[in-house]
Design a protein around this nucleic acid. Structure first.
Lengths: 124, 124, 124, 124
DNA sequence: GTGGTCTAGACCACC
DNA sequence: GTGGTCTAGACCACG
């Protein structure tokens, strides 16, 4: 379910976060479902519980999950997630456009390049 | 011309790099023009010369500038930059598409969202 | 294992890089094995940790090793190294041929001289 | 006749040296012919006379030319050059073989790779 | 403990 | 004056 890449430059807790983020956004983890406990996941991934704890805390701060003392951690409800998803998509794309604009690209250049990338994506 | 944000989590030298990268790509710094000397920029930004040096070294490795002992540092010629520019544009957009795809978005969702963002951009 | 030659004109960090490069390519350091820590090697070679750090950073950029915060530095896996090895061989030889050509040697002169060198090599 | 590349990382005096080295070895400058005076070359290339002087001094030390106070600088005689040429060719190739060997390549690997490079060279 | 960043200040080669 | 290397010693993030 989750694979840690020790070659990856990013800290481990960040890898855990990103993995859960895409799992949740893509529907691999259903809304309201329960996550493995901190201890259990730490054992499974052979990680320090601190590391898992940190990832869960951050995921809660980001609005993806919700941890309740003594009960466990749960994926947020569907309504919250829908909003999150749209935010995420929009934010990523807007950011890339802003970067390109700051590098002096015209809107048409971006549109053209983007269309080509999306076609490749569909081809594959 | 260049502003260091000490609250930014990224290292200072990386901020310097990014600033010059966009300056060069956007034409704010013309091809073949000379950059401020390492020491001079260090004074201006209140940084250690080593930090500026590191940024310049990286910019050279990335193909944006060219430093020569005893003479100074210069923006690369127009031809090298054109290629760099296209690389940059493509890389940024491809990355954002990959992120969206991993979050479970369809190609059409991305295309639609992107078109809307670009329209806003033109409207402004 | 590693010897620094202070009479060598090349910078120290480059000597460290080259030594590790050949160690890794020749199999003296096995794929996935761990390198000495930055600090430890610095003590062993009586160098500043910064200098070792720089060598390691460059080796990572070159694709020979992989450094992870909090865990250490490791030789790249076998697959990455195989490619690196072929690149290295080709680059070294191509360069020498180019030098000879620019000095006015014919391809046949080079071939003949090379064959003689290789025979000596096998004889020894 | 000589072109200085200000983008080149090597010091200028070294570029001058290398240019003369290949010119002499390739026969572009005949044995016993006279070189331009230090001052004249400095003017032509828009260089500091010190820089040219340094190059000439080094070329003399390397055995390519011979400078006589009050008379000028001259390419060495044919006999000296023939020896130099063979030395150069042999040295360059031997060095590359040594590098490859130290990286763990077999003699046959080197021979094969070399043959391929030489064929490309002839094809072009 | 690990790698990575930064500062301060020195020295070198080159032009 | 320029870029480049090195040391000494500090601090941070990560596990």
């Amino acid at each position: 379910m989750i694979l840690i890449d020790y070659r990856d430059k990013r800290p481990i807790y960040e890898q855990v976060i990103e993995r859960f983020e895409t799992l949740i956004l893509s529907g691999g983890l259903e809304p309201d479902s329960q996550l493995p406990s901190v201890r259990q996941l730490a054992v499974e991934l052979a990680l320090n519980p601190n590391t898992v704890q940190r990832a869960y805390a951050e995921l809660e701060r980001m609005g993806y999950i919700c941890s309740v003392k003594g009960r466990g951690s749960f994926v947020q409800g569907e309504k919250s997630l829908e909003r999150k998803k749209r935010e995420y998509l929009h934010h990523i794309l807007k950011d890339s456009v802003r970067s390109c604009r700051m590098a002096g690209m015209s809107v048409d250049d971006i549109r053209e390049e983007m269309e080509q990338i999306l076609k490749e994506e569909q081809g594959v």
